[in-house]
Amino acid sequence: MKICAKCVLDNTVPEIIYDEKGVCNYCKIHQELIDIYPLGKEGEEIMNQLSQKIKIKSRSNKYDCIVGVSGGTDSTYLLYYVVKILKLKPLAVHFDNGWNSDIAVKNIKNATNKLGVDLYTHVANWEEFKDLQISFLKASTPDAEVPTDFVIFSVLYNLAKKEKVKYIIEGHSFRAEGTTPIGWTYLDARYIKNVQRKFGSKRIKSFPIISLFKLLNYTFIKKIKTVRPLEYLDYSKPKAQELIKRELGWQDPGGHHHESIYTKFFQSYYLPEKFNIDKRKRELSAKIRSGILTRQEALSELKVNYPVEKGIVDYVIKKLGISEEEFKLIMNSKVKSFVDYNTYFSLIQFFRYPIKIACKLHLFPPIVYLKYGINHTKKIQEYWSAYNKK
């Protein structure tokens, strides 16, 4: 197993590329993002100017931005930062897909109440969303969590249009979380709809899945932008957790993205067992690059298998309404990837230079081009083909 000389990403990343020094392409993406998102006074000034711009553009609106909230560390701290530091008037938005932990629900309620922020919750029809999640399990790709991610994204954009808000504020920090390899996670509307047509039985009505063309309309015609303030901060999750515990009564759900029971199952059991994917490598690699921990400390942590909560697999199977035999078939079926389904990826590749310009203009987050600007489909196909032969 070859491993990056700088971080802990390795050959379990299908599209990983090493330079002559053994450093991976995701370390290089991290360095490019450092140049794009300065810290310190320069980063503060950028955010101050942006907040003033947002206020001016939204003077006649009830809300001047939209913030997605999940009850986890990042989104809770982001909401605090937007209200207390940037002095903005956000609308907090949550997508309820039926998998919220009790702690997540309490965290969202406490944060919005104590900050005096309105909360909009989009509730999915459980039978519809369950059917879509089962479809992605049957599709046998590492993207079984994509439906949730993309629907959240779609809800935010649709609500921004409805409320005439020009800014969606996201809580991602590449310094703390890293960049997810495309061979581990890929999402677009055509992909989701194709998987649902192949394996699903229900028509989706209760939640949106916006098309690429609708997204382009929102971006270039409606001029709705996505902003990531945490990218400009020397963001520390432990310090953020201390603050939101003290100020907002926040409780720890027990791990990164574990505010969702399904995500906890997905990251701790499903990905490692079926695909040999351990997403801790992404986060630990980010911390190494940011000087938060040493490479040796990260390697030591990875020697211990991702902890799986007792009973969580049985709980998920039962909640999804599938039999143990069906689940065994899912776990043992041939591994595939987004390359095996209809997606917008070839179209994204065709328009990669206009996308590059849009990223430079901050119409899209810069990571969109850095991540999707290279065609990795051949490497991904070859990787999973070899994986299936083991």
Score class of each variant (00 low, 15 high):
residue 3 I to K: 14
residue 6 K to Y: 12
residue 10 D to M: 01
residue 10 D to E: 10
residue 12 T to G: 05
residue 13 V to N: 11
residue 15 E to S: 10
residue 15 E to L: 07
residue 16 I to D: 12
residue 17 I to C: 05
residue 19 D to F: 05
residue 19 D to E: 09
residue 20 E to W: 00
residue 20 E to M: 01
residue 21 K to N: 15
residue 25 N to M: 10
residue 26 Y to L: 00
residue 27 C to E: 10
residue 30 H to R: 13
residue 32 E to D: 13
residue 34 I to Q: 15
residue 34 I to E: 15
residue 38 P to E: 10
residue 44 E to C: 09
residue 47 M to A: 07
residue 48 N to L: 14
residue 50 L to W: 11
residue 57 K to N: 12
residue 57 K to Y: 00
residue 58 S to V: 02
residue 59 R to P: 00
residue 66 I to N: 05
residue 67 V to G: 01
residue 69 V to T: 03
residue 70 S to F: 00
residue 71 G to C: 04
residue 82 V to R: 08
residue 88 L to E: 09
residue 89 K to Y: 05
residue 91 L to I: 07
residue 92 A to N: 05
residue 92 A to E: 05
residue 94 H to D: 01
residue 97 N to V: 08
residue 99 W to R: 01
residue 100 N to L: 14
residue 101 S to N: 04
residue 102 D to T: 09
residue 103 I to W: 08
residue 105 V to T: 15
residue 105 V to M: 14
residue 113 N to A: 15
residue 114 K to A: 10
residue 116 G to T: 13
residue 119 L to D: 13
residue 120 Y to V: 11
residue 123 V to C: 07
residue 123 V to A: 02
residue 125 N to V: 14
residue 128 E to M: 03
residue 129 F to T: 07
residue 136 F to K: 07
residue 137 L to V: 08
residue 137 L to P: 09
residue 138 K to I: 05
residue 138 K to Q: 14
residue 139 A to Y: 08
residue 139 A to S: 15
residue 149 D to I: 08
residue 150 F to Q: 09
residue 156 L to W: 06
residue 159 L to I: 12
residue 162 K to C: 02
residue 166 K to I: 03
residue 167 Y to R: 04
residue 168 I to N: 05
residue 169 I to P: 06
residue 171 G to M: 03
residue 172 H to Y: 13
residue 177 E to P: 00
residue 178 G to T: 01
residue 179 T to A: 13
residue 184 W to S: 00
residue 185 T to A: 13
residue 187 L to V: 14
residue 189 A to Y: 07
residue 191 Y to G: 03
residue 191 Y to T: 05
residue 193 K to A: 02
residue 194 N to W: 04
residue 194 N to T: 08
residue 199 F to T: 01
residue 201 S to H: 04
residue 205 K to V: 02
residue 211 S to V: 03
residue 215 L to K: 10
residue 216 L to Q: 02
residue 223 K to V: 02
residue 227 V to K: 10
residue 227 V to S: 01
residue 227 V to C: 03
residue 228 R to V: 05
residue 234 D to I: 02
residue 237 K to Q: 09
residue 239 K to I: 04
residue 239 K to D: 09
residue 240 A to M: 04
residue 242 E to M: 04
residue 245 K to H: 01
residue 249 G to F: 14
residue 252 D to Y: 12
residue 255 G to W: 00
residue 256 H to I: 14
residue 256 H to D: 11
residue 258 H to Q: 08
residue 261 I to D: 12
residue 263 T to F: 08
residue 263 T to N: 15
residue 267 Q to C: 01
residue 268 S to F: 06
residue 269 Y to L: 14
residue 276 N to M: 10
residue 277 I to Y: 14
residue 280 R to L: 08
residue 287 K to A: 04
residue 288 I to Q: 10
residue 291 G to M: 07
residue 296 Q to S: 13
residue 296 Q to W: 02
residue 297 E to M: 03
residue 298 A to R: 07
residue 298 A to E: 06
residue 299 L to T: 04
residue 310 K to G: 13
residue 312 I to A: 05
residue 317 I to N: 07
residue 325 E to L: 12
residue 330 I to Q: 11
residue 336 K to G: 04
residue 336 K to L: 10
residue 340 D to W: 05
residue 342 N to W: 03
residue 348 I to D: 06
residue 359 C to L: 09
residue 365 P to F: 10
residue 365 P to Q: 11
residue 366 P to Q: 09
residue 367 I to F: 01
residue 372 Y to H: 15
residue 373 G to T: 00
residue 377 T to N: 11
residue 378 K to G: 02
residue 379 K to E: 14
residue 382 E to G: 05
residue 385 S to Q: 13
residue 385 S to L: 12
residue 388 N to W: 06
